[in-house]
Amino acid sequence: MDSSPNSPGNTVPGSLQTPVVEISAEAKTFNWLLGSFATKTAGVQDAIVVSSDGLLMAKSSNRERADSDRLAAVVSGMASLAVGAAEWYNLGSLNRVVVDITDGYLVVTSISRGSLLGVIASKSANLSTVAYEMTLFGTRAGASLTPGLIAELKNVVQI
């Protein structure tokens, strides 16, 4: 095992035992794309990417990790319910789910390999524009989601 201070799992002296984790260029690019999507799309308040097993892979905000994990569970659950309903009524596969919540919308779409993009949008958001930008994000970022990148993103999601 590499004992250099920058090896994954090692800690930096004086850092209160915060592990140092190297992040690949692909993971950095994926996180940048998500952040760019969230900040540049009018009405988007928060965005997360969830793996096919319901775990948080990436988040756009500095929101507490526990809040993002709860949102990941909701996104995963909504997608599962939508897929079940689509199968039951022979409606095809999941394209997009929109839930009208008190102060905005929860929009969920699949992006690649079973991964999901979940977005919290304000009531003033143009949902057509949000959906279009979500599709663009899925096209750009989804193509890069290899099993290795998915595993890395789940392990290094920003705390």
Score class of each variant (00 low, 15 high):
residue 1 M to E: 01
residue 1 M to T: 05
residue 2 D to E: 00
residue 2 D to C: 04
residue 3 S to M: 00
residue 6 N to G: 08
residue 8 P to S: 02
residue 12 V to K: 02
residue 12 V to Q: 03
residue 13 P to D: 08
residue 14 G to K: 09
residue 16 L to E: 01
residue 16 L to M: 04
residue 17 Q to Y: 04
residue 21 V to L: 00
residue 22 E to L: 06
residue 22 E to P: 00
residue 22 E to K: 08
residue 26 E to A: 15
residue 26 E to C: 03
residue 27 A to P: 00
residue 30 F to W: 09
residue 30 F to N: 04
residue 31 N to D: 05
residue 32 W to G: 06
residue 32 W to K: 11
residue 33 L to N: 11
residue 36 S to Q: 08
residue 38 A to I: 02
residue 38 A to E: 00
residue 38 A to R: 05
residue 38 A to Q: 06
residue 39 T to D: 02
residue 40 K to G: 03
residue 41 T to R: 07
residue 41 T to D: 00
residue 41 T to P: 01
residue 42 A to N: 01
residue 43 G to H: 07
residue 43 G to W: 04
residue 45 Q to T: 13
residue 45 Q to F: 10
residue 46 D to N: 15
residue 46 D to K: 15
residue 47 A to F: 08
residue 47 A to G: 13
residue 52 S to K: 00
residue 54 G to N: 03
residue 54 G to K: 03
residue 56 L to N: 02
residue 56 L to F: 04
residue 57 M to V: 01
residue 57 M to A: 08
residue 58 A to N: 06
residue 58 A to R: 08
residue 60 S to V: 14
residue 60 S to R: 13
residue 64 E to G: 15
residue 64 E to K: 15
residue 65 R to M: 14
residue 65 R to E: 08
residue 65 R to S: 10
residue 65 R to L: 14
residue 66 A to G: 12
residue 66 A to E: 12
residue 67 D to Q: 15
residue 67 D to K: 15
residue 67 D to I: 15
residue 67 D to H: 15
residue 68 S to G: 14
residue 68 S to R: 14
residue 69 D to N: 15
residue 70 R to T: 15
residue 70 R to N: 13
residue 72 A to L: 13
residue 72 A to G: 11
residue 75 V to L: 03
residue 77 G to I: 10
residue 77 G to R: 05
residue 79 A to I: 02
residue 80 S to K: 12
residue 82 A to I: 09
residue 83 V to T: 05
residue 86 A to C: 07
residue 86 A to E: 03
residue 89 Y to C: 04
residue 89 Y to N: 12
residue 91 L to I: 06
residue 91 L to W: 07
residue 93 S to I: 10
residue 94 L to A: 02
residue 96 R to M: 07
residue 96 R to G: 05
residue 97 V to S: 06
residue 98 V to E: 07
residue 101 I to Y: 14
residue 102 T to V: 14
residue 102 T to F: 14
residue 102 T to D: 12
residue 105 Y to V: 10
residue 105 Y to I: 11
residue 106 L to K: 10
residue 107 V to E: 05
residue 109 T to C: 09
residue 112 S to T: 08
residue 114 G to I: 03
residue 114 G to L: 04
residue 115 S to T: 10
residue 115 S to F: 11
residue 117 L to V: 13
residue 119 V to K: 11
residue 122 S to I: 07
residue 122 S to A: 15
residue 123 K to G: 03
residue 124 S to I: 05
residue 124 S to H: 09
residue 125 A to W: 09
residue 126 N to T: 11
residue 127 L to K: 11
residue 128 S to D: 12
residue 128 S to R: 11
residue 130 V to F: 14
residue 131 A to Y: 10
residue 131 A to H: 07
residue 131 A to I: 09
residue 132 Y to G: 06
residue 132 Y to Q: 06
residue 133 E to K: 14
residue 136 L to E: 07
residue 136 L to K: 13
residue 139 T to Q: 15
residue 140 R to T: 14
residue 140 R to A: 15
residue 143 A to V: 14
residue 143 A to Q: 14
residue 145 L to Y: 08
residue 146 T to D: 02
residue 146 T to G: 08
residue 149 L to Y: 10
residue 149 L to F: 10
residue 149 L to V: 05
residue 150 I to Y: 01
residue 150 I to S: 02
residue 151 A to P: 00
residue 151 A to S: 12
residue 152 E to V: 13
residue 153 L to A: 07
residue 153 L to Y: 08
residue 157 V to D: 01
residue 158 Q to T: 07
residue 159 I to N: 01
residue 159 I to H: 03
residue 159 I to F: 10
